[in-house]
Nucleic acid binder design. Structure first.
Length: 476
RNA sequence: CGGGACGUGGCGCAGUCUGGUAGCGCACUCGGCUGGGGGCCGAGUGGUCGCCGGUUCAAAUCCGGCCGUCCCGACCA
């Protein structure tokens, strides 16, 4: 193999460096001048756009509408919900000066929008007839992080945040879980990432929430990543912002709220879950380009191959496949193969003189590297099937990896051993106290990623007291 | 925010110890031959050596400060 390929650090050797190499080489993002800021380059943004569209469709299908709220939040608003301020205070960026004047009141650049949206809701909601409010916004937020990595932890983040208001606690809880499922479906069906879902322990709960639910993915290096969260806010914010409505009994009461978010961090998750030593691997559903045609030509038959490749391109494009053709004459086919593997394009279509002669094309799938000679006739249909199979297979591979790296134990020595040497998810009973949670974190750096919905009784490996299932892992 | 490493064309690096005309590979531009796994030959473009100050006839190189990045730890989606 040539040196250019070798320059992508092996995933197994140094996952951290591999990740950064890959992002640069696949042109997904580039560093900005202010620490933790990044440009999302066109290819990376195209992946995000596909995720956006998928989620947005799911939001619309569940009755939500989009809106947009201000980026700037007065300090006084942020302070209204006590736990909320405390949680976000260390990472809020403040505007204290505008033009040539100092501001009377500091203005926060939103670290999340609960407070400003609640202010509007207190003006918009008067009656039970105004409920439920089911609003989502696509936006950005700023959190001044100390350690940053492209997509996974950045100073400015693109995301969506849903903010809903309901008449009853039951409805709000239902909504919280509905949106958790929406995320879960998106991860499984579209991103091919088999996330686990469950409840956050109190210490990991969103600042100001009654209950936080999470989607947790297992990355290729055995560390967990919180990929999306859905919060049941109860009446905490309604009380703080004085959101009230007259119910059917003519009584003035506080409504119940939820919020839920999914960010560009998911792009990082896709890279970490699916990428390999050759580069990125994209599930077809979020691949901006599903397949690329590489013509194989020699001087004498260039025109003929070009003509046939053009025909094939049109045919595939007309059938709805997101197809590209690489007619660049500077690079050799081998160069193009490698380039497309780094970019994670699901299928490569080779077309050369021998193929034209045999009335076929060569299909090579990125997920397994398998090569097949497909008859020219019916190629669009074959491609469709192949793409579907790749999508399924990538979910299967990721699920196998997750299952192979999920281990149960009630023995603390074994627990520590697993986290230290193998990582992955560890399933163990937890006695529900912050002390044992803290001790495990100190000993192993592992945290409770979630409490499953179905929990079994057992013995907490640390305290020896009765406990119920929790899932631990070292997290990003 | 602590411990360590590193900042030299777009990327990866050498040169720094021992001060003396800024180099290499890749990328990029032009020409030609090539083309089924990162091809070959030739000719070119591109750098105030992270920033500020000091020492010196002379600083990428020595000294001081600052900034940034990466890795390992404490906090977070």
């Amino acid at each position: 193999m040539t040196e250019a390929v070798e320059r992508l650090t092996k995933k197994s050797e140094d996952p951290s460096r591999w990740y950064l190499d890959l992002i640069r080489m696949a042109k997904l993002a580039d560093y900005g001048p202010v620490r933790g800021t990044f440009a999302i380059r066109p290819y990376g943004y195209a992946i995000w756009e596909r995720m956006q569209r998928d989620l947005d469709d799911r939001f619309k299908a569940t009755g939500h509408v989009n809106a947009y709220f201000p980026l700037f939040i007065p300090e006084s608003y942020l302070k209204k919900e006590a736990e909320h301020v405390e949680g976000f205070d260390p990472e809020v960026a403040w505007v204290t000066r505008a033009g040539r004047e100092d501001l009377e009141e500091r203005i926060a650049v939103r670290p999340t929008s609960e407070t400003i949206i609640c202010d509007f809701y207190s003006r918009w909601i008067h009656s039970y007839r105004d409920l439920p409010v089911l609003i989502n916004q696509w936006s950005n937020f700023v959190r001044w992080e100390k350690v940053t990595r492209p997509f996974l932890r950045t100073t400015e983040v693109l995301w969506q945040e849903g903010h809903t208001v309901h008449a009853t606690a039951e409805e709000a809880r239902e909504e919280t879980l509905r949106m958790l499922d929406v995320y879960k479906d998106c991860f499984y069906e579209t991103l091919a990432i088999p996330v686990l879902t469950g409840i956050k322990s109190p210490s990991e709960r969103f600042a100001g929430a009654v209950e936080t639910f999470t989607c947790e993915g297992l990355m290729g290096d055995g560390r967990a990543l919180q990929a999306a969260t859905s919060h049941d806010l109860g009446q905490n914010f309604a009380r703080a912002f004085d959101i009230t409505f007259l119910d059917e009994n003519q009584e003035r009461v506080y409504p119940y709220q939820t919020s839920w978010g999914f960010s560009t961090r998911a792009v990082g998750a896709v890279i970490l879950v699916h990428g390999d030593d050759r580069g990125l691997r994209l599930p077809p559903k979020i691949a901006p380009t599903e397949a690329v045609i590489v013509p194989i030509w020699r001087g004498k038959n260039k025109a003929e191959v070009r003509k046939e490749a053009d025909r094939l391109y049109s045919e595939l494009k007309d059938s709805g496949i997101r197809i590209e053709a690489d007619f660049d004459e500077e690079h050799s086919p081998g160069w193009k193969f490698n380039e497309q593997e780094i970019r994670g394009i699901p299928v490569r279509v080779e077309l050369g003189p021998r193929d034209i002669e045999k009335d076929q094309a060569v299909l090579v799938r990125r997920d397994t590297g398998e090569k097949e000679f497909a008859p020219r006739k019916g190629l669009p249909e074959r491609m469709r099937d192949l793409l579907e199979d790749i999508q399924k297979n990538m979910l299967r591979q990721a699920t196998d990896f997750r299952d192979a790296n999920t281990r149960s134990t009630e023995d603390y020595e074994e627990f520590k051993e697993i986290i230290a040497k193998k990582r992955g998810f560890v399933v163990a009973p937890w006695d529900g106290t912050e002390e044992t949670e803290q001790k495990i974190k100190e000993d192993t750096k592992a945290t409770i990623r979630l409490l499953p919905f179905e929990r079994e009784e057992g013995t907490d490996p640390v305290s020896g007291k009765p406990g119920k299932t929790a899932i631990f892992a070292r997290a990003y």
